[in-house]
Design a protein around this nucleic acid. Structure first.
Length: 857
DNA sequence: ATGCTAGGTGTCTTCT
DNA sequence: AGAAGACACCTAG
């Protein structure tokens, strides 16, 4: 049965009251089968009214007429409605109750209103007869308390908000977004004023009931679409926990049960359940860093308890040769098996037992190879083997669609369970918390990635990046068959090193833009069944895949990425990007972009009133303002959408955030177009274009119609930072390193010769060059070994140095803008961000003609 | 109330 | 003024 409530805040008490409900009933639901053709067989709706409204005069009559289409019970008061609902639930006696945000809203409201109206037999919402109502949570809570959840005991509750959070990644998990993204349908969100207004006519009130019923359908269909129950059933049967708890989320508990079963079966005594609050990571020996938990609520993130995966320093840039991506299949579960890591197999070395170096991984001893696999590896092996088996079954001929789905869900559940095993070892509140084991697993992971990198490099290949379990190689080839061959060769070499651990080709990229650790885009190549190759964009970590950037910034960024990856020439790419930016700048300023494109979405990690610094966080401010108006309140875990507006004030942008509805209802608010161009589009695009020659922050700013001067400095700073990095990695050629330097020219000291010898850029290291080019004088007639005349060469070097110092102190400066090209000595009085502004064009900044090259600063 | 760590980026505050 | 640090979010794996 689905449960969907309609609520409205009381105009006097401002407390939410229940005014309507719509339920769908399916008496023959199978939780081990895919969605039935008919989502439900029966339904009913109930509608009452707030105290200060009356039903339209012909409402009852019209409801009767509608009764063939829609069964509606009209009830005079909330009390009557709740009584009716409880009676219905009691009569239907559902095994499963489906809803959206039941644990975050509906259940709490229901219990509060039952309480306030003193409805008898409240416990009928569950299957256990109880007299005392569980303690209700008072308002600023983040969801139903444990005791509240117990109210429905005996019935499973499927809260699709919780399920969706586990199963799909979305911008937000409110019903509007879920309906749109999962069902591709529109959900009508009504604010409480609109709901109140609907009592003014029969047609509108019927429409309200209808919408409530439609929402119920959406909820049910989302559950079907996500296969929530089949998956929960599989997980439950794998872990041996309780299904109603599987549906409530929380991976640790499932794992706990799996291990409890495994250890008990082998006659181990399992760890006690701890009821007392454990202090997370008690590292506080001295006053040094007394745990950096943010906020007192314990909500904020702790300081990491141990080291995790290794991320290789990326060789940033744009690649247009094939890139090979190799990846260890489920690394952590494999490590547990490969090294037989278990509570029962890992011991501390003798000398470490007495000492207090608990955290020292070196004090752990890996079991010898002949030791029987422990419980943990065995369980993982069982999971992996079952999965392989199920995948085998899926390949059988003549399977029904239903069977394939069933197998697929089981294989997914097995994978999920195996993969969550590691996470639970590192979970502070887990019954099987084992920091040393978790730390050991990640350490082995780092070791393996490092070793793989070394091995690949030893094959004379160019490793450009790697993260935790993956490695990317620049093949420098344009022949895909060759690249595949290479991939297989590497695969063979790496896999030789391990019994069970396996690396595999995870992808081949035709082109790739590598910006930072965990930030890249690529065009992956796939061979279709017809043998033809197709490409697909993959974007990881970039601003454009994050929910906290506006749609505008994301769509422009998207265009930029596709253009860069397209394989067009650099000039064309730059041109296309520039013209697109021009267009966007214009459209934004002319107000031709729809408001939705300006929405920025952020999640509240706490209840809005719990933030210590509410003022400067835009989403918190918006949430607080919305909450003060009543209705459904935003709480921790919810996402807030807002736009930055021009509101007449000159507050910082972060304090000019408004909910889109506020913008729609106001005539004084306007989208802050400058903010969106300068703080949304610009940073996103300039980061993407960072490795692209021919454009930079100031160009991009100019195209968008922003003042380019402000960005020049930043662009230069980034360039310098880049130089420094290149220098650090010693990978840079000397050409690049000394590109701003004048070459040293010496004259052959031979009295009759005086042949000019330019010390050209050496191939490898300055020393080697000097030896080679200052050997015998290039003049055939001159027999001199130039380098032997140290004194003469030394003098010439001194003269050259003095000459340069003199030039430096003459202080000639040149305008950075090539088009202006002014050359002056007098320091102007106008400065822009610490740089002198050219007095002749008033735009560019002046750079010293002879300066200190940036890498040497 | 409850999976982990690594990493980038924006905004505000504090220090130099 | 600019660097440095705290904090907040979101993502990769």
């Amino acid at each position: 049965m689905t449960l969907n409530l309609r609520t409205l805040p009381n105009t006097k008490t401002h407390q939410n009251e229940i005014i309507g409900a719509a339920c769908l009933i399916n008496p023959s639901f199978h939780m081990d089968r895919p969605a039935p053709e008919q989502p439900f067989q029966q339904h009913f709706c109930a509608i009452s009214k707030p105290n200060d409204c009356i039903f339209p005069w012909d409402f009852n009559e019209k409801v009767q007429k509608e009764s063939r289409k829609m069964k509606v019970e009209v009830l005079p008061t909330e009390r009557a409605l709740l009584g009716f609902l409880l009676a219905k639930i009691h009569k239907i006696d559902p095994d499963l109750i489906v809803g959206h945000d039941i644990y975050g809203y509906d259940l709490d409201i229901l219990l509060h209103r039952i309480n306030a109206n003193k409805i008898p037999h409240w416990s009928k919402i569950g299957r256990l007869k109880r007299t005392v109502m569980p303690k209700l949570s008072s308002y600023p809570s983040r969801g139903a308390s444990h005791s509240e959840k117990s109210a429905m005991c005996g019935r499973m509750v499927c809260d699709i908000k919780i399920s969706a959070k586990e199963l799909v990644r979305l911008k937000s998990f409110d019903l509007t977004e879920l309906t749109l993204q999962i069902l591709k349908q529109k959900h009508v969100e009504l604010d409480f004023e609109q709901i109140r207004n609907m009592y003014s006519s029969t047609a509108m009130l019927l429409h309200l009931v209808e919408l409530t019923l439609i929402d119920s359908c959406h909820i049910l269909n989302i559950m079907y679409e996500l296969n929530v129950l089949p998956l929960a059933l599989q997980i439950t049967s794998i872990c041996g926990n309780i299904m109603s708890r599987t549906l409530m989320g929380g991976r640790a508990e499932r794992n706990e049960f799996l291990l409890l079963h495994a250890f008990t079966e082998k006659d181990f005594i399992v760890p006690d359940k701890e009821y007392k609050k454990k202090v997370p990571a008690p590292v506080a020996d001295e006053e040094e860093e007394v745990d950096v938990t943010k906020g007192k609520s314990g909500q904020g993130r702790r300081k990491p308890a141990y080291a995790g995966g290794l991320v290789l320093e990326p060789k940033k840039g744009f690649y247009d040769k094939y890139i090979l991506l190799l990846d260890f299949n489920s690394l952590y579960p494999s490590i547990i098996q490969e090294y037989n890591i278990c509570f029962t197999t890992i011991t501390r070395t003798e000398q470490a037992k007495s000492a207090e170096n608990e955290d020292d991984l070196l004090s752990l001893e890996l079991p010898s190879a002949d030791l029987k696999p422990g419980i943990l590896p065995t369980e993982i092996r069982k999971l992996v083997e079952s999965r392989r088996q199920v995948k085998g079954l899926m390949k059988q001929e003549g399977l029904s669609h239903e069977q394939i789905m069933q197998y697929d869900i089981r294989q997914k559940a097995l994978k999920l369970t195996a993969n969550s095993m590691y996470g639970c070892l590192g979970f502070t509140f887990s019954r099987f918390y084992a920091k040393p084991l978790a730390a050991l697993i990640t350490m082995k992971g780092r070791e393996i990635l490092m070793k793989t990198k070394d091995l690949v490099q030893a094959m004379n290949l160019d490793v450009i990046y790697g993260d935790t379990d993956s490695i990317m190689i620049n093949s420098n080839s344009t022949d895909i068959n060759e690249v595949t061959k290479l991939g297989n060769k590497i695969k063979g070499e790496v896999n030789k090193l391990y019994k069970l651990l396996e690396i595999d080709i995870d992808g081949i990229y035709k082109s790739m833009l590598l910006l930072k650790k965990k930030k890249y885009a690529a065009l992956s190549v796939h061979k279709g069944p017809d043998g033809k190759y197709t490409t697909q964009e993959e974007k990881k970590g970039l601003d454009i895949v994050r929910r906290d950037w506006s749609g505008l910034a994301k769509s422009v960024g998207d265009y930029v990425v596709s253009t860069i990856l397209s394989g067009e020439s650099r000039e064309t790419v730059v041109e296309l990007i520039h013209s697109r930016l021009n267009e966007v700048g214009e459209q934004v300023r002319e107000g031709k972009i729809p408001v939705e494109e300006f929405l920025i979405t952020k999640q509240l990690t706490k209840n809005p009133e719990d933030y210590p610094d509410k003022k400067s966080l835009p989403h918190v401010q918006v949430a607080l303002r919305l909450n003060s108006k009543g209705g459904k309140r935003l709480k921790g875990g919810d996402t807030v959408a807002y736009v930055i507006c021009e509101d007449g004030s000159n507050l910082a942008a972060s304090q000019r955030a408004y909910h889109p509805d506020e913008l729609a209802k106001s005539d004084s608010l306007k989208i802050d177009t400058k903010y969106y161009l300068a703080h949304q589009v610009h940073p996103v695009v300039s980061r993407l274009c960072d490795p692209i020659e021919g454009t930079d922050a100031s160009h991009i700013a100019e195209c968008l119609g922003l003042d380019p001067a402000g960005y020049r400095h930043a662009a230069q700073a980034r360039e310098e930072a880049g130089d420094q990095e290149l220098l650090d990695t010693v990978k840079v050629t000397d050409e690049e390193k000394y590109r701003d330097c004048e070459r040293l020219m010496v004259k052959c000291p031979g009295a009759t010769c005086r042949r000019e010898i330019v010390l050209d850029v050496p191939l490898k290291g300055a020393d080697m060059y000097i030896e080679a080019s200052l050997g015998k004088c290039p003049n055939e007639q001159c027999p001199l070994i130039v380098a032997k005349n140290h004194v003469a060469i030394g003098n010439q070097l001194t003269v050259a140095i003095r000459d340069h110092i003199k030039k430096y102190y003459q202080g000639w400066m040149k305008c950075e803008d090539m088009a202006c090209g002014a050359r002056v000595r007098k320091m102007p009085l106008m400065f822009q961000r610490g740089h002198p502004v050219c007095p002749s064009c008033n735009k560019g900044v002046l750079n010293p003609e002879v300066g200190i090259p940036s890498p040497l600063k």
